[in-house]
Write a protein that binds this DNA or RNA. Structure first.
Lengths: 325, 325
DNA sequence: TTGTAAGCGTTATCAA
DNA sequence: TTGATAACGCTTACAA
């Protein structure tokens, strides 16, 4: 690959001049510019970003750690983060932690070695202390790690209210919440809080079930829902804390002979594109994923530039009525 | 961040020695190693990968271009590619081309500037010539760009046979194939070829519909399928060239009052995890995504090491019977 | 307006 | 077994 030297040689100027043309810095005669551009073209020159990054101590790389890129919610998140980051001049280094502590710690180390300019954490299985040591712009999704790391979340409580209120308004008398393990740090817990509060206020019987293992291992939600239906045959409403869980609930309910939404009403959470692929479309509480993705990138960039940033970034949710409730 | 110099200073050795310890090269007394490791620990030293990459002229970065990370098939592909690449010591630079020519070309430039060691192309909208200029290990999915760029695909023809034969065996008399635009370079076209051949052989009426725009813009398949049902009310079997299309078909058929699989049988393609989230689970032709992902990474690495590689990598498919056919 | 030279943090060559 | 020192390809004072 040609280097800046080759270009300089060919254009008959110094490397400094080539660098200046490359970065549009300082005063340059049009003529010189032309000569340099031509030399670049002829040599198919591409500046070496590794060298630039090293020299500038800035990589224009953002690290993104998610539990699993194969999960629809994270797929959408990744896609929007990448798109916006790219438009802002950043490249994305993607990591699947698989919710494995060791792997997540390794990834953080790796990203620091890679001199990324910041890390977006869609996955967080470590202790507060481990994140404090990062010393790099960080933003997290759905978890408040400490009071100096900004976090992004949807309005979980409001979402829980919307979903539960809908079930109540539709006449449900006994409702269930199905979710992942209710880790106290996880902001998603607020969906459950709202679920309980609304059910209480409306005088509706309510129960709560959850997994103890990997929240994102979906197949487990099949048996979980099946058991729910067996132990509580009179359930007539389900608030699932993700659309994928809702989809499983829908499936299992049908397999148990329940009509949706007549016998049991189901509301999901997330509002991934996939929801309207089901028949009927899933009723869900939608998060504004593109906005949240954009904010994540902005927060990294702003911190990088030394700006002060707000710590709380709670995005409004919206009830999207499909046909399951 | 501490550098190798700081470590050397603290350990009372030269940077060369530290570098040697870091890379486990040459002869080193145990004592020295210990001293160096200790200094590293104390300083929380992390080698700067940018500098290493520059110095070694090897980045350990793999570029992956996909149409859209939000599409389930690519989500799974990304996830497996990342996991395997990481285990082999490579990091992943992710790009969403959105099937945009200009963007794809830009991404390729960007990846070359980033000095990635190779590029995995899950998206290819450019001309053969554009890919020839890459001068880097490349592997493509589902498209044979030229005879010196290895490609990975599932056994598309066999998959088409399996799907169509199943429909025929189940007694379908008029079947449709729904797919994206049949670009001649796309190996997925073979699914269609097989569909026609089998239908012909079995004496079954068959029609073919497809989009002219972005294959991955799913919502369009709703109206497309609706029109199909209106124009050909006697359709009793559909072979969709992706699971997402199959899901839309399932939905639209139901909305038109058709019972699945009694009135219309539907078979998808890809075998993404999501298929068994539907009720009933989607019947589909499954590609071995993890194996294909792994092969992609291996092919990049092998080419990088100067090894000769096979050009054709066709993976066996498997009919997975859900409840839609 | 252009050029020289030092520096970014490593690795690699050559001596010692 | 260990250490100077020159690359790697770029940016950026500082000079001219």
């Amino acid at each position: 690959m040609p280097t800046i030297k080759d270009v300089a040689l060919r254009a008959g100027v110094s490397v400094t001049t080539v660098s200046r043309v490359l970065n549009n810095r300082g005063y340059l005669s049009e003529e010189l510019k032309k000569k340099v551009y031509q030399a670049m073209d002829e040599l198919h020159y591409r500046p070496n970003e590794l060298a630039r990054s090293l020299s500038r101590s800035k990589s224009n790389l953002i690290g993104l750690i998610v539990p699993n890129a194969a999960h629809p919610f994270f797929g959408e998140l990744i896609s929007h983060i990448e798109e916006y980051a790219y438009n802002q001049g950043y490249r994305l280094l993607l990591c699947n932690s698989l919710l494995d502590r060791k792997k997540e710690a390794e990834y953080i180390d790796m990203l620091r070695s890679s001199r990324v300019d910041g890390i977006i954490l869609g996955s967080h299985t470590l202790e507060v202390e481990d994140y404090r040591h990062i010393h790099l712009p960080v933003v997290t999704f759905d978890r408040q790690i400490s009071d100096d790391i900004p976090y992004i979340s949807s309005d979980n409580y409001r979402g829980g209210e919307l979903a539960t209120t809908l079930l109540a308004d539709k006449g449900c008398r006994k409702i269930a919440h199905i979710g992942g393990h209710p880790h106290p740090d996880l902001l998603a817990l607020k969906r459950l809080d709202a679920f309980k509060a609304v059910a209480m206020k409306r005088g509706i019987a309510h129960i709560e079930i959850h997994t103890d293992v990997d929240v994102f291992h979906y197949p487990q939600y099949g048996p979980l829902t099946a058991r729910l239906l067996e132990e509580h045959p009179d359930i007539d409403g389900i608030f699932a804390s993700s659309d994928m869980i809702a989809a499983y609930a829908l499936k299992v309910c049908r397999e148990h002979g329940r009509k949706i939404p007549d016998d049991i009403r189901i509301v999901g959470y997330d509002g991934v594109k996939l929801t309207d692929l089901f028949s009927p479309s899933l009723t869900t509480v939608a998060q504004p994923i593109p906005d949240m993705a954009r904010r994540a990138v902005d927060l990294i960039i702003r911190q990088m530039q030394g700006g002060q940033v707000e710590m709380e970034h709670v995005f409004p949710v919206e009830l999207v009525e499909g046909g399951t409730a």
